[in-house]
Simulated scan of single mutants.
Amino acid sequence: MEDKAAPVKERISWIPLELNPDVWNKLIHENGVDKTWAFNDIYGFDPESLGLIPQPVSAIIFVYPTMTETDLKFRKQEEQRILKEGQFLGPNVMHFKQTIYNACGMMALIHLLANNRALLTGPGVFREIVEQADGMTVDQRIKLLENNKRLAYVHEIAGKDGQTNAPAPEAEVDVHYVCFTDTDDHLYELDGDKPFPINHGLCTDLVKDTARVIRQIMERDPNEKNFSAMALSRLG
């Protein structure tokens, strides 16, 4: 009897989001996020530049070159270390695994909102996802995002709303989005390409503690220059 190969799952691909505060603010404010909070560019990670960031800050979105030889090596070592030594994961930290190609910007945003639920003051797709994801397994959360047509729609609108021409969903993009936020008094790096959240220790100052980790990432690849970040800050 001839063996039948299992069907190959078709890859879902989305337009990459542009790191543009105007685009992201429109995206969140039209979909139930508290309008007293907004994204602002971060112009550097030195003390003077960090001092320009409006406070308070609930999270930082960081964009950096990924899949470099150094990055791949570090990711493998980090995962092996955590699997061997373990790490503290607070009861309220929520993590999603990314399977949608070029959706790392949206994954960073979902991680931000899932771990800062107080920002979800109105109805919308983000509140629905976060509430449904409670108690779900990794695989269930993957299906939740892959099958959410409303999320795909708002992402497509935002993906076409930047200052530059939107690349194709299948385009090769050499940067990656991650979220840093304070959950349960610890600084977490939330990355859909990693198998679990990364606990960077107790968080006493979100901006300064995140900048410390970001500088370490940048120092690992000193020849790379394509680093950017935004902070979600409360207005006024």
Rank of each mutant, 00 (worst) to 15 (best):
A38V: 04
A38Y: 02
F39P: 00
F39V: 10
N40K: 12
D41K: 13
D41A: 10
I42A: 03
Y43Q: 12
G44V: 07
G44D: 09
G44A: 14
F45C: 02
D46V: 08
D46Y: 08
D46Q: 05
P47E: 10
P47T: 06
E48D: 10
L50S: 06
L50D: 03
G51E: 03
P54L: 06
P54I: 02
P54F: 04
P54W: 03
Q55H: 11
Q55N: 06
P56F: 04
P56H: 03
P56Q: 05
P56S: 04
V57I: 07
I60D: 00
I60T: 01
I60V: 15
I61Y: 00
F62K: 03
F62I: 12
Y64K: 00
Y64H: 06
P65T: 10
T66I: 07
M67L: 13
T68F: 06
T68P: 01
E69A: 13
D71F: 07
D71N: 12
L72K: 13
L72S: 13
L72N: 13
K73I: 05
F74T: 08
F74M: 08
R75S: 11
R75C: 11
K76S: 14
Q77W: 04
Q77S: 08
Q77P: 00
Q77F: 08
E78K: 15
Q80N: 09
R81M: 12
I82Y: 05
L83I: 12
L83Y: 14
L83C: 06
L83G: 15
L83N: 15
L83R: 15
K84S: 14
E85I: 08
E85Q: 13
E85M: 14
G86I: 11
G86R: 08
F88S: 10
L89D: 12
G90F: 06
P91D: 08
P91K: 13
P91M: 04
N92K: 09
N92F: 10
V93K: 06
H95R: 13
K97H: 15
K97R: 15
K97E: 14
Q98I: 07
Q98E: 12
T99G: 09
I100K: 04
I100G: 04
I100L: 06
N102S: 05
N102M: 07
